[in-house]
């Protein structure tokens, strides 16, 4: 056994010496191609209109023109919409996490009459078409007196992600070793203490995962913020601002690129912060 391993070792290391270079080269080439649209957008956002046409597919600007950003920032009222979007995204993430973590926990780790029914209903909504009119939801919000407030956007946005989040948390909690819970119960911890003090802290990676997915959709949403802030356009979000901006400046290509970068940059930053957690989170959820 050792003899074989000993004989094989030089071969493997030779392969690994040459291998990584090829792998890295391929990955880098692929990555550059994959990110080319981003690079081109970023570069074009700094071009003048003449440069935009003159340089064509070359993403690098000749001399960076930063005024595009100032113009886009003001033109699309991004300043006013930025805080709305941050607030909506944060609140939507918090609500979604609370609602789906608690639901996912009890569905994974407790038994109660009616659980099977809950699971069937939740699963069925994945397949059934979601209504093609906003009117039922609009009427509910009107009844609650929440129209034209950021809360209506947050609630509707959060409800859109509960099914997916609940399933992910269910999978994650199911994979956590039961002995931890049992030990805490022996120590006299009650239901709430087990969840808040033991299970929830253990689910950090999943919180990051669901949080990230929720943040992406909340940040980019367009129609819901548009409809629920009809009477108060100052409550709009970046997504709505961007849409209007596209409509108003459809031939101001460099400005459009700058606007795109402004809307994308924060969500990319969030992703960069959370990304190292979230593959682990998903790994936990798929572990059976």
């Amino acid at each position: 056994m050792t003899a074989i391993a000993g004989r094989r070792r030089p071969l493997t290391s030779a392969a690994t010496r040459r291998g990584p270079w090829v792998t890295h080269l391929l990955l880098l080439l692929g990555g550059i191609a994959w990110l080319y649209p981003f690079a081109w957008t970023l570069g074009s956002s700094l071009k003048s209109t003449d440069e935009f046409f003159g340089r064509g597919l070359n993403p690098l600007p000749g001399s960076p023109l930063w005024s595009n950003y100032a113009e886009a920032w003001q033109g699309a009222s991004f300043g006013a919409y930025f805080l709305n979007t941050v607030f909506i995204t944060v609140a939507t993430v918090v609500i979604t996490l609370l609602v789906t973590a608690t639901a996912g926990y009890v569905l994974a780790r407790t038994h109660f009459p009616g659980k099977a029914l809950v699971l069937v209903v939740v699963a069925a909504t994945v397949f059934l078409p979601h209504g093609y009119t906003i009117i039922p939801i609009f009427d509910i919000m009107r009844g609650l007196g929440l129209l034209n407030s950021l809360w209506s956007i947050i609630i509707v946005q959060a409800s859109g992600g509960v099914v997916f989040g609940t399933f992910l948390f269910m999978g994650y909690f199911r994979a956590i070793d039961r002995s931890l819970e049992d030990a805490a119960r022996v120590d006299g911890a009650n239901f709430h203490q087990i969840f808040w003090r033991i299970m929830l802290p253990l689910s950090g990676p999943m919180l990051a995962t669901v949080g990230l997915f929720t943040a992406i959709s909340a940040w980019n949403s367009f129609f819901i913020p548009l409809v629920f802030t009809l009477a108060r356009p100052e409550l709009r979000t970046l997504g709505v601002g961007m849409y209007a901006f596209i409509g108003e400046n459809s031939t101001d290509w460099t400005l459009l690129c700058a606007g795109s970068v402004i809307t994308l940059a924060p969500i990319i930053a969030i992703f960069l912060v959370l990304q190292r957690f979230f593959i682990n989170g998903l790994a936990g959820a798929v572990k059976q």
Binding site: L98, V99, T100, T102, A103, Y105, V106, L107, T110, H111, F112, P113, K115, V118, V121, V122, T125, L128, P129, H130, G131, Y132, T133, I135, P136, I137, I140, I155, V156, A158, S159, G160, V162, V163, T166, F191, H192, F195
Partner: peptide
């Protein structure tokens, strides 16, 4: 049911959101 009351409390917010903003619009449609 009484023994599992906290389970219901924990799953309820999800169900409320689901019922009001997903299931009800489907039925209305």
């Amino acid at each position: 049911i009484a023994g599992a009351r906290w389970s219901y409390v924990y799953v309820l917010p999800m169900l409320v959101l689901l019922a009001a903003f997903v299931v009800y619009p489907i039925i209305a449609s």
